[in-house]
Write a protein that binds this DNA or RNA. Sequence first.
DNA 1: CTCCATTGGATAGTGTTACTCTCTAATCTT
DNA 2: AAGATTAGAGAGTAACACTATCCAATGGAG
Lengths: 216, 216
Amino acid sequence: MQMAELSGASGVPVATVKFYLRDGLLPPGEPTSATRAAYDESHVRRLRLIRALADVAGLRLDQIRHVLAVVDDESTSCAEALGTALMPRTADAGPDPEARRRVDRLIRRWRWRVGPDSRNRDSLARALSVLDSLEHPMPDEMLDRYAEAMHQVADAEVSSVPTDNRDRAVLHAVVGTLLVEPVLASIRRLAQEEISRRRLTGRLRKGRRPRRPARG
Amino acid sequence: MQMAELSGASGVPVATVKFYLRDGLLPPGEPTSATRAAYDESHVRRLRLIRALADVAGLRLDQIRHVLAVVDDESTSCAEALGTALMPRTADAGPDPEARRRVDRLIRRWRWRVGPDSRNRDSLARALSVLDSLEHPMPDEMLDRYAEAMHQVADAEVSSVPTDNRDRAVLHAVVGTLLVEPVLASIRRLAQEEISRRRLTGRLRKGRRPRRPARG
DNA sequence: CTCCATTGGATAGTGTTACTCTCTAATCTT
DNA sequence: AAGATTAGAGAGTAACACTATCCAATGGAG
């Protein structure tokens, strides 16, 4: 397929596809002449991924470039990809050693092994530090609750990563991390809305709801 | 306190404070003369909140304006605030009725009550639809897992909202929703990194880890 | 073979967002 | 009286993500 068809299949305007090509986000097509190149399904998929990372995960193009580089780099494993590749908000601020220590204690409590250059540690420390500065501190108890919930969730997620093919595995991991984040956030808000509503109507008993869905 | 001190206490440059005042993000100080106004701690807190919503939650200024309007509006309850106020990514795309139906089924399975104009329903549908288009569909089974985890988390969170004071309650709910999102995301990534690492080293047994933190 | 649409490649322009700067006149401090 | 600070208004700027225009080469229709 060539440019017009690629644009049509992906829903991305021709001018923007050219821009992504220039920017190195989209690999070039197979040149068939001086003014023609052939694209294939992989280009369509890549374009859709770029748009999803931008629109749904809210990444900027330089972050998307970084993510794609990791996906394309055959030498990175899933764990490395998860640890270093995904840095959605750049952590530029000061470290705040107190928050950093709290994060390290959390990691130790759960006996997690985390790469020393993992951005996730910094972004968590930063978020906790900001919550402190807003006089809305996060108790360790609540952190552990989050860790428990996320550990369960992550276990199921990692189980669903294909193990046969490295490329598919890393792509699955990256998509499953970055693009599922808004899914989790939305579900959390829906649950908060429900529970908040339930408290208002006087139904104050806790843990009464089934832990498993109805009619499941 | 006046401008210079407000700027110093909040860490926001004078020019930016003036810009926020003009933009209606920061309420004006009490004017003491034609070229002077008095600010107080509430202005410092508001500025810190604005920066946190922008830097940590990634909201744009118009979204922050909307959030602040809800916080300031005495007539909105917590549930309303959670349902409608928080629309971090504007859902402008087409509806995709299939994804919408999946979300409605999820909500019904869990017997959640959701406001008919809740943005959360749309943003979840949009995220699911995008995952489909990436050939990375989200099974209902996994959605239920997420719902279970988020229901547990939300229950603890809503319990921690103060009930005596409406203003503090809504602020707590909004901060606890928007600014805790990156906390959850970071913890999820740390857990994913750990579990992914564990799978690599051949420790394939599931659910072996303590559900409660060590030394807790 | 001619003619016109399409393409690759390059460059320049646009709209949005979030500030940042400059200026003026009034006022405060010393 | 003099220098600094401020409110308020407007213009300027930097980053980002496109979007438009141009050109020469090519491909396909007739």
